[in-house]
Design a protein around this nucleic acid. Structure first.
Lengths: 217, 217
DNA sequence: TGCTAGATTGCGGGACATGCAAAAATCCCG
DNA sequence: CGGGATTTTTGCATGTCCCGCAATCTAGCA
């Protein structure tokens, strides 16, 4: 009586939800989110405007739902790792692996970043979602290390570092239009930088202003 | 012709702005932000509702403006430091000093955290402001170290780490209702944890659950 | 098939953000 | 000191949005 019986109900619910999100994203990409009304989204998704309000608190959240990172799984994998392993090492592995295995998904998520620059209204909501992730991750880190989220710095600081590694890697990867293979490297670099205590990088020869190579093969 | 002539105009502008923010904060503390209309805020601040829209894009931003961290100055001080000093060391000094010298101001900012838990609508906006700070700081770090915000991980990662140190310290300091003197220590601890490469802290004796000492001298 | 719980819809009200133009306040220079 | 120029404040009107409520429709199950 809990999460059992994934009946047609739940399925259809998720379908309409996805339909709404997809419609919102599509229209936002076409015209810019400000020029899109919920009524249009409703038509595009074959639902009533009222229904949209039932699923999302705002247009923004609808759009955001379409470009989700899908990292929840990573969280679970993290928890089922040997707990004597340093959290940041585990997260480095998990996140770079994730980037290796789902580049397409992350391409989608980075499209969202573009959209965001075009529609500033999206920013607050997207960032809020990130912070939610950080909080969930903090809880797991705390559980793993026997520390407290409310009174110890450690879990939040570590979780935030991991998310930062992911996000800034994604940002650079997207801005520079790099290849799929380079994202995992970026993520690992970011984590390494952190676990090395943020050494001042007297510019490495390549990163400064000369592009690695032309990105297209 | 730039920032000169701080005429009566500019002064009054800032005054009304502050008045609006203060009014919004006061009412939000009383009734919860959702139960407060812009019209009420307008009455409380002796302005027209329309004027509020001239200054802030939403109620939320008005409230937020009242609990600002006021770290802009720190940014400037950061830029005028010897640039051979590692950024995180400089920021550790600057931010812990800031906490030492303006605990009252930070108390105010931490009140905002409480309000936020009561009014979830505030979260996105507040976090967005934090990210703005990170971006400004990233730019300064980049300028300092000769790296690029758009193509190097370093500046964003460092800036984000610093802001994380500040924010999580504030959060714990506020939740645990610690003394004024313990905030700078927390901040320094956070930075030290980072520059030490996030060692797994098998709980240090004091931070876990025993308060440092009674806060009153 | 028929009953029940859950989902969708329509309607209506309250609130907000924004453009525009008029009115008030401030500034600057003669 | 005074009057024109500039900026800020204000009122009004419009379009949109969010949400509560009640009615309708649909899936689930006996």
């Amino acid at each position: 009586m809990d999460v059992k019986h994934v009946g047609l109900r739940e399925i259809k619910k998720r379908m309409t939800r996805d339909a709404i999100a997809a419609a919102a994203l599509k229209l936002a990409e076409q015209k810019g989110l400000n020029e899109v009304t919920v009524e249009e989204i409703a038509r595009e998704a074959f639902v009533s405007p009222r229904t949209i309000s039932n699923y999302f608190a705002s247009k923004e959240e609808a759009v955001l739902a379409a470009g989700d990172l899908g990292i929840e799984k990573v969280l679970d994998e993290f928890s089922s790792r040997p707990s004597d392993e340093p959290p940041l090492r585990a997260l480095r592995e998990l996140l770079s692996d994730y980037a290796r295995e789902h580049p397409d998904h992350l391409r989608g998520a980075s499209k969202m970043t573009r959209l965001e620059q075009l529609n500033p209204t999206l920013r607050p909501h997207r960032i809020a979602r990130e912070v939610e992730m950080v909080e969930m991750l903090s809880a797991r880190v705390a559980a793993r290390t026997g520390t407290s989220v409310t009174s110890d710095l450690y879990p939040s600081v570590v979780a935030s570092a991991a998310m930062t590694a992911m996000i800034t890697s994604l940002a650079i990867w997207s801005r520079e239009e790099l290849s799929d293979e380079s994202l995992p490297r970026l993520i690992e670099d970011a984590f390494n930088m952190m676990t090395a205590g943020y050494p001042m990088t007297r510019q490495e020869p390549r990163t400064t202003d000369a592009p690695v190579e032309t990105s297209s093969p």
